[in-house]
Design a protein around this nucleic acid. Sequence first.
DNA 1: GTGGTCTAGACCACC
DNA 2: GTGGTCTAGACCACA
Lengths: 123, 123, 123, 123
Amino acid sequence: MPWELKTDRPIYTQLVEQIKLMVFSGAYPLGSRLPSVRDMAQEAAVNPNTMQRALAKLEEEGLIITHRTSGRSITEDARMVELAKTKLAQEQISELLEKMRLLGFDQEAILTLINDMVKEMKQ
Amino acid sequence: MPWELKTDRPIYTQLVEQIKLMVFSGAYPLGSRLPSVRDMAQEAAVNPNTMQRALAKLEEEGLIITHRTSGRSITEDARMVELAKTKLAQEQISELLEKMRLLGFDQEAILTLINDMVKEMKQ
Amino acid sequence: MPWELKTDRPIYTQLVEQIKLMVFSGAYPLGSRLPSVRDMAQEAAVNPNTMQRALAKLEEEGLIITHRTSGRSITEDARMVELAKTKLAQEQISELLEKMRLLGFDQEAILTLINDMVKEMKQ
Amino acid sequence: MPWELKTDRPIYTQLVEQIKLMVFSGAYPLGSRLPSVRDMAQEAAVNPNTMQRALAKLEEEGLIITHRTSGRSITEDARMVELAKTKLAQEQISELLEKMRLLGFDQEAILTLINDMVKEMKQ
DNA sequence: GTGGTCTAGACCACC
DNA sequence: GTGGTCTAGACCACA
């Protein structure tokens, strides 16, 4: 559990991403119970409110279920997880495309570059 | 100038990336003289040795020229800059592809996703 | 016992509603004796005169019986309770219809919406 | 502008509802600029963070647009407003149905009551 | 103990 | 000046 936090983006969005990655990687299996907000906050060295906000966001997306008095757990719905995974991927791609745009590449140049690199990987 | 530094990768590589971005974005124009190593290190709040190493790396790539007696300056060779830009782009793409692989997408799925998103941007 | 009191409506009408709900929910069983006006007023943090007025209203409706010498009690007449329940329901519905009217829905639109939602609940 | 706030539900949800009502009633016309978060918070006598949360929720629903440095305004998209209106109506109806259920009415009884009352209004 | 909400006060980026 | 985020600390309901 790295909990790498930069200061250039809201902390809670970074928490959201990293928790997602843990779910997708199986560090938190489907249906498993999460530590308490306070514990996770301490673990990540952030304020409990900030962790709370991240978890609320994850619940909104359907990846986490809240049991009012007895903590939270990861959803057991594999489709939900699949959906969230695709969404995260799209966000990452979107970020890349934005960076490329800033570097002055147009869409054709971007696609060419990416296609070439994927082909290289195949070899 | 953000100078955002995480602790999960060598600091000097992060300095390299960020200085490149400044060059590509025009913050440091072609041919312009750079501040002293000492000043840049203080600016970024890193050890001068670390900054030194980053600048050496940049010189290796041909982006920066060292004048024995009078400090360093950005290369005037536009082709050099173009080359470095492409290399940076490739690194970014490589990072993305690695992340996608970790998420469990294979090459076809990745390409499909990216192509769809670029098409969307066109609209 | 929440005793939630807003300032936008006469307090005594709000007391009336809340006491009714307690009766309907069984918090005050049929035939049971009520606390003294003074005690109930203190409980709800209102002036005894206000509580008095609420109880008088409830007696008017036949939900409460006053025994000259020995305080008040809930009626034992189940029909009375049933009647009061229906009346409360009608008031709630009336409030809703008024709100919907303010939102710009006409009667047909309102009925359609409600019917659709009840059907959904059935599923 | 009443700003009636009870303590039995989260304040920010009540703020959301009341601001919606102002929009639907035309108190805040489509496209008009909203007061600053701080001003609205003072107006409603709540903490700026609480008002912030309400406004964030309204932006999520598409009813409000945020201009990073120059305040917020009501959306100009009439369809958005229509959608939000229907959603609010459904919530109100849902609340009513829940109350009726607590009073012990089943679905048929509820529908009968409502239909009768709407017919009465027509006359 | 759990999650949820609210307040107060601070700081930041943007323009 | 604007919105946005974060922290610290408190309180509540639930069970």
